Amino acid sequence: MSDSQPGMIHGHVQYAKGAAEEVIGNITGSEEWKKSGQQDKEAAINEMHEAKQLADKETDYSDRNKSVLNAEGKAESALGRAVGCEGMVENGEEKKHASE
């Protein structure tokens, strides 16, 4: 990660890159590619956790339209489940809960 602030999008891209490297390593039998992929995925997960912590500090849903917030939460949760992103599911569930 660079000196910039952690970001969810960058973290997701880095995770996908790591997963691709791991697949290449599995196909070719290259331990170097597998290790690189695992390291990228681990770094991406750490970055996404850091970005979530920063966002949690800044998040205040109290002034948001409750029905819009609920719809966003449902959509984000469903998309997270579809792509296997635990963080998106958690964030969506938080939005749904905040809309109650």
Rank of each mutant, 00 (worst) to 15 (best):
K66A: 13
S30Y: 02
E93N: 12
V68F: 10
L69C: 04
C85L: 13
P6A: 07
A51Y: 07
K66D: 05
H97P: 00
Q14I: 06
A19G: 01
G18D: 06
A43H: 09
K74C: 00
M88D: 08
N91Y: 04
E72G: 00
K41T: 05
E100W: 01
D56I: 07
V68Y: 09
N46A: 15
D60T: 03
A75R: 04
L69Q: 05
E76A: 07
E32N: 10
M88I: 00
G37S: 04
D60G: 03
L79W: 05
K34P: 04
D60A: 05
D60I: 04
G92C: 08
E100S: 09
H10E: 12
H97K: 15
Q53A: 15
V89R: 03
Y61F: 15
D56P: 01
G29W: 06
A16V: 10
M8D: 03
E93R: 11
A43E: 14
K34I: 13
E21Y: 11
S4K: 14
N91G: 03
E76Y: 03
E42W: 01
N91Q: 12
E47K: 08
K34T: 13
S99K: 06
K96C: 03
G80F: 07
D60K: 05
A55G: 04
V83N: 06
E31H: 07
H49R: 15
L69S: 04
Q39M: 07
K41A: 11
V23I: 12
G73Q: 03
K41V: 05
K95P: 02
E42K: 10
L69Y: 06
A71S: 13
H12I: 11
A71P: 00
K66M: 08
A19P: 01
R64A: 11
E31F: 04
C85N: 12
E22S: 11
A55E: 11
I27E: 10
M48N: 10
N65H: 08
H97A: 15
E42A: 15
I9C: 00
I24N: 06
S67T: 12
D63W: 01
I27N: 06
E72M: 14
D63N: 14
V13F: 06
K74D: 10
M48E: 11
E76S: 03
N91K: 14
A98E: 13
N70C: 01
G87M: 13
T59P: 00
G87E: 11
A71V: 02
D63R: 09
A19L: 14
E42Y: 01
E94V: 07
A16L: 12
E31A: 15
T59Y: 07
A78S: 12
H10Y: 07
N46Y: 02
Y15S: 07
G7N: 14
K41N: 02
E32R: 10
E31V: 13
A43Y: 02
H97V: 11
Y61S: 08
R81C: 00
G37L: 03
E86L: 03
T28E: 07
G92H: 06
L69G: 04
C85G: 01
E72H: 09
I9K: 09
H10A: 14
K95W: 08
V13G: 00
Q5G: 06
S36A: 14
E93G: 00
E50C: 01
Y61D: 06
D63F: 07
K95T: 02
Q39I: 05
